[in-house]
Amino acid sequence: SPVALPPFFMRGSIIQLADGELKRVEDLKTEDFIQSAEISSELKIDSSTVERIDSGQTPNAVVIQFSVGELKAQVCVEVLVEYPFFVFGQGWSSCCPDRTTQLFELSCAKLCVGDVCVSLTLRSLR
């Protein structure tokens, strides 16, 4: 694959929360992201709803259109099909959960239109 996979999605990766607590990536919960963002002076959690999922430029890529935050700003990102997003109340989800599990050993649900993902914005952005 020409695109390097982020190492931190590999099962067993150690993640440091904003309060210093260490957790494995597969053990993260929605509250961990919410509480970490509450502590952060710069970052704010937004709810980003999946509006559309289309094919990307290459066969293993998808373009995901999100509706971000209270303003419902439309943001598109192109990612590999195995790229996991964290869905509120559900956990890691990707467009191709089988491939995510195969590559990262990370259990994943299928990312669907309507899912609400954890995303970040800068607190100073308005």
């Binding site: 982020p6 190492p7 931190f8 999605f9 990766s13 150690i14 993640i15 440091q16 929360l17 904003a18 260490l22 990536v25 993260l28 961990d32 992201f33 970490s36 952060s40 970052l43 959690i45 937004d46 980003s48 999100f66 971000v68 935050g69 303003l71 700003a73 943001v75 990102v77 997003f85 964290f86 993902c117 954890v118 995303s119 970040l120 914005t121 800068l122 952005l125």
Partner: peptide, 19 residues
Amino acid sequence: VPVFPWHSLVPFLAPTQSD
């Protein structure tokens, strides 16, 4: 063992400024 910050796992989706 590498330790990664929590925010590296979350996409940064900045809405385009419209004002």
